[in-house]
Write a protein that binds this DNA or RNA. Structure first.
Length: 387
RNA sequence: GGGUCGGUGGCAGAGCGGUCAAUUGCAUCAGACUGUAAAUCUGACGACAUUAGUCUACGGCGGUUCAAAUCCGUCCCGGCCCA
């Protein structure tokens, strides 16, 4: 298929076909996994984080290494998140952790207490120094429980910051003499919380910024959390926001999500995804299992709930199920986690063994579970690509 | 044999007259996790009722007291010291 749902992206580190999923290698690794583990799972692109790498090991080291690809020895497409999410997760959630002004964000390092200032310009400079293939504008993602007024302020700030980012982006392109082939792709982020009109305003504002600066965004992201305060998937907002984004641009659903959320976002027009779920859930002992007899389709199935529950046990029509491998019922279960899976875990070990690894708290359990869940995500994305 | 210290819920280990069904940790049982401050966090954890409440419990038995895991006597068991 060659319709707009199956785009090809050329990056300096290789070609990508949409839709695709990127695990979060926030601090230049997917926790517990080696590059070999990543490769075997079939994962190609990954996400690294501007703020966390800026803190540690610091940009001097990354630059000396020759960029983050060389530092990690990972030579496939990497996208850097701008640090915008940390404005949300560190500061909005706990104002003592820093200060947000129109000009800049002052972070107090969660580990050392040290203060660091990030501006939109600085975030872009760092991302160029990282040498990633795709970058994201520094944005202000407000929590969904903020008042509409406050979310509107975050929208306007995000638009102003996007403009500063794009101007800085152009500067860096010129300064580093990058060509259209060697330049990283740049994404802006649409904020607006649960308000369709604010999402629309943000998307329009970002489109306008591109015109003013004279460079199109390669893609637009969905910003902040895509589930509301009750934990419900914000279906209308996701659908509308996708429609506000120019059709030939990439649509990046940042932080999405559960397998169910990814599939329905895909059906709404979103192309790219990243999330900690497969790895974090894996580390915490929850494994995803594909139900081979249920098709990967959600949009027309009213029986699929919007509940936030990742563990969609109640839903017999879901295309996947989960197991919490720590549960005592697996203690003497000598079958594979998923007999249809070809990952290192399922090919070599039993549920009982994985249960044991989790009970003794050995990191091998977390590694194998992460590998399995990433394999699940890779195969799920492959199914979507072939649809 | 003498002396001494101790025996608390699956384990370790607090409590040393009432506010104790008993702190805490581990273990156990479940749950949560969505651009990673997450190998994290939350709840349950004597029995029955499962809101209220009722019962049985801090080695055994007996006592003191309005009231005892907490004080006294005695028995059983264990550690250490002396013979």
């Amino acid at each position: 298929m060659s319709d707009f749902r199956h785009k090809k992206i050329v990056t300096k580190s290789g070609l990508l076909k949409t839709p695709f999923f990127m695990p979060d290698a926030t601090r230049a690794l997917v926790k517990f996994l080696s590059n070999d583990d990543i490769k075997k799972s079939g994962i190609v692109p990954m996400v690294v984080n501007t703020y966390h790498l800026f803190l540690q090991p610091g940009m001097e080291t990354i630059k000396k290494a020759g960029g983050v690809h060389k530092f990690m020895n990972y030579h496939k497409p990497l996208l850097s998140d701008s640090g915008g999410y940390q404005v949300f997760s560190l500061i909005h959630k706990n104002p003592k952790m820093g200060k947000i002004t129109d000009r800049e964000v002052i972070f107090r390092s969660p580990t050392s207490g040290e203060k660091h200032t990030i501006t939109p310009e600085k975030s872009i400079q760092i991302q160029f120094d990282l040498g990633v293939d795709m970058m994201v504008c520094f944005d202000d993602p407000p929590p969904n429980n903020y008042s509409k007024e406050n979310i509107a302020l975050a929208v306007e700030r995000t638009i102003r910051w996007a403009k500063r980012c794009l101007i800085e982006y152009n500067k860096q392109i010129k300064k580093r003499k990058l060509t259209d082939k060697s330049r990283p792709l740049i994404f802006s982020v649409v904020q607006g919380g649960e308000y369709v009109d604010l999402r629309k305003r943000c998307a329009d504002g970002l489109i306008e910024v591109a015109k003013e600066v004279g460079r199109d965004w390669d893609g637009y992201g969905f910003g902040a959390r895509h589930i509301d305060n009750e934990g419900k998937f914000m279906e209308n907002i996701l659908r509308s926001t996708a429609s506000f984004i120019p059709e030939n641009s990439l649509r990046f659903a940042l932080g999405v999500g559960t397998p169910k959320d990814i599939v329905r976002c895909y059906e709404m027009g979103w192309d790219m995804f990243d999330c900690v779920i497969p790895t974090r859930e894996g580390r915490h002992g929850r494994l995803f299992l594909r139900k081979s007899n249920v098709p990967l389709k959600i949009s027309n199935d009213k029986s699929i709930s919007n509940d936030k529950n990742i563990n969609d046990k109640k839903n017999g029509k879901s295309f996947y199920e989960t197991v919490s491998i720590r549960n005592s019922k697996f203690k003497n279960d000598f079958t594979p986690v998923d007999k249809n899976c070809d990952c290192e875990l399922c090919k070599n070990h039993t549920r009982a063994y994985l249960n044991h690894l989790f009970r003794i708290g050995d990191p091998l359990g977390m590694r194998l579970a992460s590998i399995h869940n990433l394999r699940f995500y890779v195969k799920m994305m492959k199914e979507l690509q072939e649809m």
